[in-house]
Amino acid sequence: MEDGKNEPGAADFYYGECEMRRHDKDGTSLAERALLTAYWALSGYGLRALRALGWLLGALTVTIAALMLWGLPAETPKPQFIGHWAGPDLALVDDAATPVNPSGPWRERLSTERFEKSLRVVINSVVFRSSGQDLTTTGTYIEMASRLTEPVLLGLAVLAVRSRVKR
Rank of each mutant, 00 (worst) to 15 (best):
K78E: 15
A74F: 01
V100A: 04
A49D: 01
L159M: 12
A157Y: 02
Y15H: 10
P105W: 12
S29D: 14
V165K: 05
G44Q: 07
L156E: 09
L159G: 04
S146R: 01
E19D: 08
G87F: 07
Y45G: 02
L156W: 07
P79M: 01
S130F: 11
S118Q: 04
I64F: 00
V100Y: 00
L47M: 06
S103A: 15
A38E: 13
L53M: 12
A11R: 05
G132Y: 06
T149S: 13
V121L: 00
S43L: 02
V122Q: 08
M68V: 04
T138Q: 00
W85M: 08
P102R: 10
I123P: 00
G87E: 01
G9V: 07
A160K: 07
K5E: 14
S125W: 03
S163A: 14
S130M: 09
R109Q: 10
A145R: 03
N101K: 08
K25L: 13
A10W: 00
M20R: 15
L50V: 12
V152R: 07
G155A: 13
Y141W: 15
S111D: 06
E113L: 14
L56P: 01
A34H: 09
G4F: 11
A66N: 09
A160C: 05
E116Y: 03
D3R: 13
E19Y: 11
P77H: 10
Y15K: 05
D134A: 12
L110G: 03
W40Q: 11
L60Y: 04
A38S: 12
L56F: 06
E150R: 01
A34W: 07
K25E: 13
G4K: 12
G71M: 03
G104I: 05
L156S: 01
A97N: 12
E113R: 14
S29A: 08
E2I: 10
V152S: 09
D89V: 13
K166D: 09
E32Y: 01
E108N: 10
G139F: 05
R120A: 04
H84Q: 14
K166L: 11
P99V: 00
G44M: 02
A157T: 01
S125F: 02
G4A: 08
R114D: 06
L50H: 10
I82D: 13
V121N: 02
E7C: 10
L119P: 01
E108V: 02
L92M: 10
V62H: 00
L47Y: 02
